[in-house]
């Protein structure tokens, strides 16, 4: 059964004149219990995709389904960890996580809520920093709070928007290991947005590239046994082939984008060189 489904979804920003189409004709099924990684260059519309899945943004065309029912808005059953962390700067670590616990488990007793907060704070190893505010935390710690808050919603689907992209390589590797552990502990479906091929292969069951033109690439199944070991993977034949394939695909998709940019700049030059026609040829600015 697919838990989340996008059917021929188009999405963009702005209206009429200044309109930019970001996603075009997206068809995507997220299967129950899988970890799906969406891989793409920055600015290709990954955050837009997450907003659509979360119900924070309505598609311009097409439909989004959650468990076969149309999505009309956001809800805690689809937990989101935002790219910018989005922690309340005025709340401590404990209160930030507690805010989610209180909202989602409103009927639980005070003690139960406290226990839940403790549990998720412990899961990401932040019990010692419970009284600190986001400004007093490192990037990695903020990221952990953001993930703990999403986990505390006990969502059916966890939407993770580039959770590790803003971190340094070492912290990143460490948090990837933690993610794999959390993944083993909770069996929620996860959609992981990332721009790192290795991270995607290390964590995901399935990888879908998002092309710069706003369409989805082919599926790549990651048939590697779990738990995965970073060092062992380095000598794994399947891993290397997969990595090669995906990288090649992304590079070619990137080349296509570059080619289009060249066409665009040529068109712009032409517009500028013929000022009399300039007004009528505004369309020139967007050749695609």
């Amino acid at each position: 059964m697919s838990i989340l489904e996008l059917k021929n979804v188009h999405a963009g920003y702005g209206s009429a004149q200044s309109r930019t189409e970001v996603l075009k004709g997206i068809d995507l099924r997220v299967e129950d219990g899988e970890l799906l990684a969406v891989l793409g260059f920055s600015g290709t519309g990954k955050t837009t995709l997450i907003s659509l899945l979360a119900g924070l943004k309505a598609p311009d065309k097409g439909e989004v389904f959650f468990k076969d029912a149309p999505v009309t808005g956001p809800g805690p059953e689809r937990g989101v960890a935002f790219q910018s962390y989005a922690l309340m700067p005025w709340l401590t670590v404990e209160d930030n996580i507690g805010l989610a616990v209180g909202a989602v488990h409103a009927k639980a007793s005070r003690a139960e809520r406290k226990a839940l907060t403790e549990k998720y704070m412990g899961m990401v190893g932040l019990t010692h920093a419970r009284d600190r505010r986001p400004a007093e935390l490192s990037g990695g710690m903020r990221q952990r709070v953001s993930v703990a808050r999403a986990l505390a919603m006990q969502p059916e689907v966890l939407l993770l928007d580039e959770p590790l992209s803003a971190l340094d390589a070492l912290t990143r590797a460490k948090l990837q290991d933690e993610f794999a552990e959390i993944r083993a502990e909770t069996d929620a479906t996860m959609v992981l947005i990332t721009n790192d091929v290795d991270e995607a292969i290390f964590l995901a069951d399935r990888i879908v590239p998002l092309n710069p033109d706003g369409t989805l690439g082919p599926d790549y199944r990651v048939a590697l046994p779990r738990p995965r070991n970073r060092v062992a993977l380095n000598h794994d034949e399947t891993y290397h082939r997969l990595r090669g394939d995906i990288t090649k695909y992304l590079m070619e998709a990137g080349e296509m984008r570059k080619a289009r940019v060249t066409v665009a700049s040529f068109c712009r030059m032409w517009c500028r060189s013929s000022p009399s026609k300039h007004r009528q040829t505004r369309r020139c600015r967007r050749p695609t």
């Binding site: 924070l56 956001p74 689809r78 935002f82 808050r149």
Partner: peptide
């Protein structure tokens, strides 16, 4: 994004 957090949590 903070507003979006509130929407996802369906805060009272």
């Amino acid at each position: 994004d903070l507003v979006n957090v509130g929407r996802v949590l369906q805060l009272s």
